[in-house]
């Protein structure tokens, strides 16, 4: 039975693919085949194919040699090449290890799947890709590039990520900002917990570096509704603080506080003119991919 393209973007489906390369290819091809159009061929430097000349097109792309041999007007199509860098910044702190019953993967795995898919897409479009992953320090760093092997190195770095420690957003985002020397798109992936005050401000600074920023917040569905029905001793992944409670009793207050947190975050990013998209680990990757393409178009 054929797999629908939407299924290819379902984390429950993609998480079965251990290899990030295959997973990214499956997600992106599935996503693109669903769009029914190709907008990514341009006039770069790398020859891609010939197509018939359409009156009105710039004559400089006509292949005169073909015209001389065959008496046909054909236009050279080149692989689009841009000087755009796509920076992926991933928060790999311990809180990203969580995986509730409804999710097919942990938050970090979901973030990596998004990063892999977007990186694959970016590479296909000729963009340079770069990776920064941090916890209380930078754990993975990959300089921008688009040559052969860059995607492979990118995916290998994702594979090595293990969610441990606590995240020091302020310090590390400052550090990462120094590495961004040219314009580009920053895709920031994090659960953004307890950072609604600092993150919008930090990501706003990236605009000063001529970078457009896309903040993708990744949460597990359990973090939204606290579904557990029995007494549980909750242990904070990063601080190891404990609180024993019965979720049924505190669910209302929790959801209210969580909504407020999300609202504050949304307002903060809007003020900082940073695009913000909250995602649950059960959401299709298509949401992230379309957000990315939307931003890229606006930049290019």
């Amino acid at each position: 039975m054929a797999v629908a393209y939407k299924d290819l973007l379902d984390p429950a489906h993609l998480t079965r693919i251990e290899n990030y390369s295959l997973m990214a290819k499956a997600a992106v091809e599935g996503f693109l085949s669903g769009m029914h159009r190709s907008i990514f061929h341009g006039f770069g430097t790398e020859f891609l194919q010939y197509r018939n000349y359409v009156p009105g097109e710039d004559l400089k792309y006509l292949d005169w040699k073909v015209y001389a041999k065959r008496d046909e007007l054909v236009t050279k199509v080149f692989q689009e090449e841009t000087s755009m860098n796509c920076y992926f910044v991933i928060d790999a702190s311990a809180s990203h290890h969580y995986q509730g019953d409804r999710a097919a993967c942990s938050k970090l795995r979901y973030a990596c799947m998004i990063a892999a898919s977007l990186a694959y897409l970016a590479t296909r479009q000729g963009d340079n890709i770069s990776l920064f992953a941090y916890q209380d320090s930078i754990v993975e760093a990959l300089e921008p590039g688009h040559r052969n092997g860059q995607l492979h190195r990118f995916l290998q770095a994702l594979t090595r990520l293990q969610p441990t420690g606590s995240a020091n957003h302020e310090k590390l985002l400052k550090s990462i900002t120094h590495h961004m020397r040219s314009r580009g798109l920053v895709v920031y992936l994090s659960d953004m917990l307890e950072a609604e005050d600092t993150l919008p401000r930090m990501l706003q600074n990236l605009n000063l570096q001529h970078c457009d920023c896309l903040a993708l917040q990744i949460l597990d569905p359990d973090e939204r509704d606290l579904p557990h029905g029995y007494p549980i001793r909750y242990i904070d992944s990063e601080t190891n603080q404990e609180v024993t409670t019965f979720a049924d009793s505190v669910r209302g207050d929790y959801q209210e506080a969580m909504d407020k947190f999300m609202g504050d975050l949304k307002r903060g990013f809007r003020r900082a003119q940073v695009d913000y998209k909250p995602l649950l680990t059960t959401d299709h990757l298509g949401h992230a991919l379309s957000q990315y393409l939307h931003h890229r178009e606006s930049i290019v």
Partner: peptide, 18 residues
Amino acid sequence: AVNLKFPSIRFIHRSQMP
């Protein structure tokens, strides 16, 4: 009570047992 590592307990408060 079952032990559960949770991303953040910032908004979780202690409560009476059921």
